[in-house]
């Protein structure tokens, strides 16, 4: 019996390496992606994200290691079950929206009647129905991005890989796309979401892997990772606290934001003690809150640490 609380692994990357001449783009990379979850594939520019994704979607093959998708070795037959939205998106400039969508669907083995039905449905959902017969060059960048997304999901893929899907979208459209993603997500689908925008990853992803220079840096569920990093972080706002904040034996580092300060407590310091000492020394506390590190902090720390 399959344990329902522990979702099945849909994509397994095992000890994958890819080199271009002397340059190792990906080095001994391993991680698992689970069904029904949104997986964040994170890393700075040039970390090897695109190279890895290209191996997952079968554009290139790894030099070493293996990639298993739905318990099968990656093959061209599996490509029809993957929807890939590349970072650098492209549409045929002079072709009508509907013709492009039909072509991309046909390339994934969808019959035209099924494709037409889904095209109408998705154009309606994206509020682009009246653009169906227009050429790409007539569309705004945001609209083109939505069309690109439709092209990615027309064949109802089991694995959806989105490389920077929100770049160039305004905040309203980002929200819109997040809603659409939420609708698409179900217990049978796997979504891999590659980005270097940590705020978005933090909102959307259940699990992440962070890679840098072709190697894995951190992986696991977002919750666990944050907990392991977030033992001694306080969001603080108050006055008359300079003396205590300057005490290096208690507070290692202070990061000042616009509306609050982030206090990194020294190792082994109990936040309760810090609060007590503040109150005793006459600090007027308007905010004192244990927080977790943002994914951004973890990202920066890990990537800087490696440099």
């Amino acid at each position: 019996m399959l344990d329902i609380s522990q979702p099945a692994i849909s994509l397994k990357i095992s000890n994958v390496s890819k080199r271009f001449g002397e340059f190792a783009a990906v080095e001994d990379l391993s991680f698992d992606v689970k069904v029904g979850r949104i997986f964040g594939f994170l890393g700075p520019n040039g970390a090897g994200k695109t190279t890895t994704i290209r191996m997952i979607v079968g554009i290139t093959a790894p030099d070493e290691g293996s990639i298993t998708l739905f318990d099968q070795r990656m093959s061209s037959g599996l490509q029809n079950r993957i929807g890939y939205l590349p970072e650098e998106r492209g549409l045929y400039r002079k072709m009508k929206v509907v013709d492009q969508l039909r072509y991309f669907a046909a390339l994934k083995g969808v019959s035209q009647s099924v494709a037409d039905e889904r095209i109408d449905k998705w154009l309606g959902r994206m509020e682009l129905s009246e653009w169906k017969k227009k050429k790409t060059s007539d569309l705004s960048k945001g609209m083109q991005q939505k069309i690109q997304f439709i092209a990615t999901v027309l064949h109802d893929p089991d694995l959806l890989i989105l490389d920077e899907p929100f770049s160039g979208l305004d905040p309203i459209n980002v929200e819109f796309m997040i809603d659409v993603l939420a609708e698409f997500k179900s217990n049978e689908k796997t979504i891999i979401f590659s980005t270097h925008l940590m705020e978005t990853a933090e909102r959307l992803c259940h699990d992440i892997v962070l890679i840098n220079r072709g190697r894995k840096v951190v992986s696991g569920s977002l919750r666990e990772i944050k907990e392991s990093y977030g033992q001694n972080l306080i969001a603080f706002r108050g006055t008359n606290a300079d003396a205590i904040l300057g005490d290096a034996s208690i507070i290692e580092r202070v990061v000042t934001h616009s509306d609050a300060q982030e206090l990194h407590l020294a190792e082994g310091v109990d936040p309760q003690d810090v609060l007590r000492r503040m109150v005793e020394s006459g600090v007027i506390v308007s905010r004192f809150e244990r927080t977790e590190p943002s994914l951004n902090d973890i990202f920066i720390e890990k990537v800087r640490g490696a440099a």
Binding site: V57, I59, N80, P86, G90, L91, Y92, R93, F104
Partner: peptide, 17 residues
């Protein structure tokens, strides 16, 4: 060149050989 310039090739290559 169009498919290369617009990066459509990436989508195409993820769909067919």
């Amino acid at each position: 060149v169009e498919e290369k310039e617009t990066r459509i090739a990436e989508i195409l290559f993820s769909s067919a050989r």
